[in-house]
Structure formats: structure tokens, C-alpha cells
Design a protein around this nucleic acid. Structure first.
Lengths: 343, 343
DNA sequence: CGCATTTATGTAAACCTTTTCATTAGCGAT
DNA sequence: ATCGCTAATGAAAAGGTTTACATAAATGCG
């Protein structure tokens, strides 16, 4: 084994060792057909000997890019995040890009920190999982040029950004239709946070399913906040009333799990007394008791599509703004059944 | 508002506008005390006017760094990952570093892909969540120089890398002591994957607690694999026997949840018939029924410590290899109770 | 006032590539 | 042998910083 050189070898070292110019080395690497068989061999040999790896910073500086994509999320701990990130990562890696991740925690200062990062050219593109455009001074400043962006999961109102996510409307409709098919007529929606776009879409799907099925539809919305605590609280508030729904369509699995837990702690059972359906199919949905019937979000597929779309758009930013709505599948487990016959 | 310039302003633009040299601009930014009050003002004004942001690639090339840390994980979907990542991210961001993430999925090719990335200077340091040194050709090649590294959560045998993680031995001992304090004498350990270092440490803690408490200790190990499926299977296998333990200390929460589910589906109850204690305190531990008694890993603290240690070591690599074992707390919920009086 | 010392600024090199442009050599055709 | 054309290579610029060194101005002191 050669002795360890003090520093990482540069293109100069390779060129010297191969007895050619650095231009030729570069060409041997990137345009092999432009260089003669014999010198190409000398160059590859020299590269092997020196252990040369092109310095990414120099390349990026010269080529005016960074080969990085920044993923900006509201929270890393979101149940959907790992799955999406896995998809993003898979294609970024396959296409030679690095993934830079940042979480804003809803904190404007942190967000500005990251946009500064972006502004200094540390990323060629931006994946938004925040549900909003990067709020920051620099957008309104002189250099208004944002990198190509794709919004994932959370559609952004009034912004011309491509969007990839599950079709919340149709998937919710599907969920509620399933409850209806089981015989339920009094179905409540336990919502997500107030003003949340996704919650609104899911609510619309819920309404549509009811309107389709019944002449006179009973829309029943209870406010939650997307956490299991919120689901629990929603049930508590509801159970003060004397008329109750027989099934709950929940904003997400966390909410559903909270709802189930609240129902159970009142001595009632799911799905015998009440049916509960969630949304997301988070990893734990199959591990709760009863296992949760829900809508599966194709998380990694969402991530893959989003990243592909973004990277396709990098070279010339010519790809038009477009939305991809992916199909959400109904996953039937054990938290739904027909309604109790007697109320 | 100024009109939008075609390109991002460079230091030259600022210098020209301020009527000084680029060296002065650079100094005004980094060594403000070395530049006179008046010119400093001119420079800052020019910067504001142009919307100048230093080009990160150029800076990094010049300064021979990248201001990035790579986080290499086995899987992004690991239950502990988001929490640790949150901690890592928090301090990286605060200290001006970007977080580059990659998941190897146990795939050697992917791992090599990332080490190539590293070798080209795209990261100044490396956080290992893989439990092993980056296996790759380049380690054995001529340029053997690895960047500073810190291993997190998974200790790495026979490698001189700093390590930050929970004190698996003591925490496990704590868990088992708790079961003993409830009156259990026949306690089984449902392990993680074969050969897993962490599982081995937890096993040792388990053994130590037993040995401390009883003259004659009954060590009882059942193989799992770290998934809820594994926990479930372990219980099934065990229940063929006629003597059974009264309590289970599980490798992790996933295993514990699987175990509980298997016990329940045999018509038995936790904690009345069997006590189950987990490890990790994953977000869902409080949402299962019965809510899971477990050991909490201080995930974000682990991430913060690891990143701080790594970044402290970047300037001169002078900090010695060291291990930080963090305390794991016992979180008492409802999955443990005293043993059944009659066997 | 003259010299030494500090302070402020500018010039240019260095960081490592990619790529344009120019040059040289080689070859076939006339 | 000469011309023209192609193929292979090299020289040098450009990308945007930081910083060592040089220079000029200003200040201190005897």
C-alpha cells in the first residue's frame, strides 16, 4: 500500500503523475471520448495511485451549483416525515444530490437562518414541508430570486409552486364512504388544527361523501388539533351531548388513536360501540388496539415524486408549475364495524 | 425597491459601489475592528443596497471546509431517529453548520456512495448512527484520512471514535430493579437482533440487576429482533413452555408493544397477568393500552451532545476520544404491576 | 522636524475545478 | 509535397472568496 500522503491529492498531482495537463485529466473524467485511449489509461492509473477525488467545493464553485437540495420541514418529529424523507433521500442520492435538512419549528428566526443559508447558494433547490413560502426578508429584498421549489404534503395557497401530495379530498371521501357502506349515518369529523389547509380538504371530502350518499346530510365537525390529546379532548367534549355519532372520521391517526383511547376509558369499545377511522397509516397504526383502519399515504412515493420533479426542473427551470395528487388507499383493520343497532 | 439585478451580487459589486477594494469588504465583514468606522459604514450600505450574500462555495473552497456535517443512519424510519436528529439539527444550526443526511439501509453500495460524497470534501464531520465504521474502499486506499466522527447511540467495537448514547447497562439495570421491586422473581429478557451491541449491553444490565438482588439468579433470554413482530413471536414461542416468567424486560418499546399484543391476544392482560417494560420511550409508548412503562432515552440531548462534541473537535482534531453515557430515566406508566399471586 | 510605529487599505496569490481557445500533430486527398 | 481537416492536447481564464504581504497614511515621541 502506498504511503499516506499528507494531503488529499488534487488534479494537479494527477496531471503531474500522468504527465499530462490538468485539462486532460478533467476531460478524461468527464468527456472520455475526447481523450485518446493511451492517455486515458495513464490518467486512470494516476488517479488510482493518488486516490484522487475531485474537490466538490471547487467543482461547485466553478459550475455555479451546489448539488444539494434543502428540505425545510416544520418538525422533524412529524409522523409523516420519516417516510417522505426516505423517498426524498432515495432519489436525491440516486441522482447525485445531497440532502440538507432543516426544521423551522414554526420559528421565524430559524426559518430566516435557513433562507440565509439558501441565499448563499448552498442549495440548488428547496423542498417545502412547511406549508408556507419561506417567509423572510430576502424575498422582498433586492435579490428576490428563489431557487426552484416543490411543496410536499401541504399545499400552499396563492403561491405558484409545484405541489406533490396525497389527494386529501378523494381519500377522505373514500374513508367516509367506507363508514357509510358499513351502515353508519351519523358520522362526525374530528378536525385538525384550525385553519389547516389539509384539514379543510379532508373536511370537504367528508362532506362530499355524505352529500353523495344521503338526501339530507348531517355534517358534524368537532375541533381537534392533530394530536392524540386533541382527539381525546374532542371525544370528551362531544360526550356531554345526548345525541352522538356512531362513527368518527379523524383528521389523522394520532387524532384517531386519542379518540379511541378516550372512548375506551369511558368503558366503551371500538369498534363495537363506535367506529373510528384515521388518516395517514403511521407506522403504529397497526400496533394499537384495536388496530386502526385508516387511509394510507404513499409517503415514500410522495417523496420520490417531489424530488424527481424538483431535480427535473433544476437545469433550466422550464417545467411548469403542476400538482401531483397521489392516491390514498383504504387500509381496513379492526377499528371500524357496523353501527350499534340500538342507540 | 431597487430593481432586481440579473445575478446575485458578488463581493466585487460591493467593493465597487463602496469605492473600496474587495479585501476591505471582506475585512469589514469578518474583522470589523480592522477597518475604519467610515469605510465600514460605506461597505455596510453597499451590502444593503446590493443584497450581497457571500457565496458559500467560494468561501468553503478558500477556507478548505464545507460547514456541513453528514449524518449517516441505518434507517431514517428508526423510532429513535427523529428525536436524535432534532438535537443534532438544533446545535448544528446554532453553530452555523448544515446537516447532510444519508441513510444506508444496510446497503453497502449506498454507504459507499456517501463515503464518496465525504471524500470529496462535502462534509467536515460525520455523525454515525449506523453502529459501524463507514465500510468502504477509500478507507483502505491511499487517502485514509477520515473526517472527525462521533458515533451516536450505537457503540462501535474496536474503533477509536467518540461515542454518545444512553447508558444502556445502568438503564437496563434500573428497569429490571423496578420489576424486582414490584415483587417479580422470574423475569425474562426479550432481546434485540442477534449480535446487536446494544442488546448485549441491555442484557448485561438485566443480568446485573438479577445477580444483585438474588442469591441464585434466573437468567432467561428470549430472542427477538427489535420489531413488534419479533416481540410477538418471542411470546408465542415462550408460551409453549409450562413455566413462564411473570415479567418481561424488552430490548425496546417496539418489542414490548408486540409482546403486549401477543399476551393480550391470548386472552391475558397486562399488567395483571404479566408485566412488560420497554426501552426507549418512543412517542407512542404513552398511547398504547396499557400505556407502556419504559426507560426514556434523552434523544435530543444525545443529539445535542454528539454534535457539540463533533464541532468542538473540528478546528484542530485535538479532543481525545471519549464516551458520554447519558442517564436513562424510568418512566412509570401502566404496563407493570406486582406478579400474580398464583402461578 | 524627523524618525519609528501603528493603522488602514490595496494587490495579488491561493483554494481546485471546468472550459474556451489556441496549438500541434497526424492523416488523407490532391 | 502541399493543403485542409480532424483529433488530441495544453495554456489560461473564470468562478468568488480570504489573507499574506506591500504600501501608504497617520500618529507618537524625542
Amino acid at each position: 500500500m502506498d504511503k499516506i500522503p499528507a494531503k488529499q491529492a488534487t488534479i494537479d498531482d494527477v496531471a503531474k503523475l500522468a504527465g499530462v495537463s490538468i485539462a486532460t485529466v478533467s476531460r478524461a473524467l468527464h468527456l472520455p471520448e475526447k481523450v485518446s485511449e493511451s492517455t486515458r489509461k495513464k490518467v486512470t492509473a494516476a488517479i488510482a495511485r493518488t486516490g484522487y477525488r475531485a474537490n466538490a467545493m471547487a467543482q461547485n464553485l466553478r459550475m455555479q451549483r451546489s448539488k444539494m437540495v434543502m428540505v425545510l420541514a416544520r418538525s422533524i418529529s412529524d409522523s409523516n416525515f420519516p417516510g417522505i424523507l426516505t423517498g426524498l433521500e432515495r432519489v436525491a442520492n440516486a441522482r447525485g444530490y445531497g440532502l440538507l435538512i432543516g426544521s423551522t419549528e414554526g420559528n421565524v428566526e430559524l426559518e430566516e437562518n435557513y433562507t440565509r443559508f439558501m441565499a448563499s447558494g448552498m442549495a440548488d433547490g428547496l423542498i417545502l414541508l412547511t406549508g408556507s413560502m419561506p417567509t423572510s426578508s430576502w424575498r422582498h429584498g433586492p435579490a428576490k430570486r428563489l431557487p426552484p421549489m416543490v411543496s410536499v404534503s401541504h399545499p400552499i395557497d396563492h403561491a405558484d409552486v409545484s405541489y406533490v401530495g396525497v389527494d386529501n379530498f378523494s381519500a377522505s371521501k373514500l374513508a367516509v364512504e367506507y363508514l357509510i357502506s358499513l351502515g353508519h349515518r351519523r358520522i362526525a369529523y374530528i378536525s385538525g388544527p384550525q385553519g389547516d389547509t389539509i384539514s379543510e380538504l379532508r373536511h370537504q371530502g367528508y362532506c362530499a361523501a355524505l352529500a353523495n350518499a344521503f338526501d339530507e346530510s348531517l355534517v358534524w365537525k368537532v375541533n381537534g388539533n392533530g394530536t392524540s390529546e386533541g382527539g381525546r379532548a374532542a371525544i370528551e367534549r362531544l360526550f356531554i351531548k345526548d345525541t352522538l355519532p356512531t362513527a368518527f372520521f379523524c383528521y389523522n391517526d394520532n387524532t384517531a388513536i386519542g379518540a379511541i383511547s378516550a372512548i375506551q376509558s369511558r368503558g366503551l369499545t371500538v369498534p363495537k360501540d363506535f367506529s373510528v377511522i384515521g388518516f395517514d397509516d403511521i407506522p403504529f397504526a397497526s400496533n394499537v388496539t384495536p388496530s386502526l383502519t385508516t387511509i394510507r399515504q404513499p409517503r415514500s412515493q410522495i417523496g420520490e415524486m417531489a424530488m424527481n420533479h424538483l431535480l427535473d426542473n433544476l437545469p433550466d427551470r422550464s417545467i411548469p408549475i403542476e400538482s401531483a395528487l397521489l392516491h390514498g388507499d383504504l387500509i381496513v383493520r379492526s377499528s371500524c364495524a357496523g353501527p350499534r343497532t340500538q342507540f
